[in-house]
């Protein structure tokens, strides 16, 4: 079993560059987040003056690495900038020796995380043990809310699209009144006309679905490109899966066929003279 301890939340606002002067042996090593390095024009080997408050900035640090943080959806909107230091250096800087915010505990292979957390919590005083799964579940609450919001918006959009599709299909079939009347006059059976209109509705729905899927891919790509640039992150914001495509195509085909059937049924049960406008 191994452990590690971390202190975190060092404020970017407390960092100041003092140029690339020679580095003394006792100077603390600092790893700087790539975006912060870009904003402050920092490079490996530069020296920083650090402090727990704006004044005094008495501790010297040297940029030993510039790192790219893991994309984290919880962080993107905060625009916070981070640095990393060795724990003893940070503890000394903050004037809080031997204090940490949290420990990470690695279990031996086969050991149950839930059991270990229970055992630790039974004897805990001043701390609480969580499994990684519990922390992931707790920290994903924000995204669950966003996901619920997206689902609610999706339902409204689907209802609006369904009504739109019904309306368009009805109009499309009604547009064929004269054709239907002529076909009825020359003896074409109702069932044949119904089938033809239904096929037309299905074809339109299928074409619309294909065009809609293409549009969704383009919109998704544009969304990802825009927000990746906007937030300077590698996160994926819009993900169009085969399941989503299958659901959308199935729904629009189904709705198109239902709407086409209703409209075609009305049309073939109207007298030909009425369809011709003389009834």
């Amino acid at each position: 079993m191994g452990t590690y301890a971390r202190r975190y939340r060092v404020l970017a606002g407390l960092l100041f560059i003092i140029g690339g002067s020679p580095v003394a042996a006792q100077v603390a090593e600092v790893a700087v987040e790539r975006r912060l390095a870009e904003e402050l024009g920092l490079a490996v080997g530069d020296t920083l003056r650090l402090g727990p408050a704006v004044e005094p900035l008495t501790t010297l640090g040297v940029v030993s690495a510039i790192y790219e943080p893991m994309p984290d959806p919880a962080e993107i909107a905060k625009r916070e900038r981070h640095i990393r230091m060795h724990l003893p250096d940070l503890a000394e800087l903050l004037g809080a020796p031997d204090r940490v915010d949290r420990y990470g505990v690695g279990l031996r292979p086969g050991a149950s995380a839930d059991t270990a957390a229970r055992v630790l919590n039974r004897t805990a005083f001043g701390y609480r043990a969580y499994t990684s799964r519990a922390i992931a579940s707790e920290s994903s609450q924000t995204f669950l809310v966003v996901s619920r919001f997206h689902r609610a918006i999706a339902v409204i959009t689907i209802v609006a699209s369904a009504v739109f599709l019904l309306c368009i299909m009805l109009l499309k079939v009604e547009e064929r009144r004269l054709d239907a009347a002529v076909m009825r006059f020359v003896g074409v059976r109702r069932r044949t006309i119904f089938g033809a209109l239904l096929l037309e509705a299905a074809l339109i729905a299928a074409l619309g679905s294909v065009a809609g899927s293409g549009l969704a891919y383009l919109a998704g790509a544009a969304t990802n490109a825009y927000y990746r640039r906007f937030f300077d992150t590698g996160l994926t914001f819009s993900l169009i899966t085969p399941e989503i495509i299958a659901f959308s195509v199935g729904l629009s085909l189904g709705l198109g066929i239902v709407a086409g059937s209703v409209a075609a049924w009305r049309l073939v049960h109207t007298r030909p003279l009425v369809l011709w406008g003389r009834g």
Partner: peptide, 8 residues
């Protein structure tokens, strides 16, 4: 069609 349009 009016009803559907108004709902839409």
């Amino acid at each position: 069609r009016t009803a559907l349009a108004v709902i839409g």
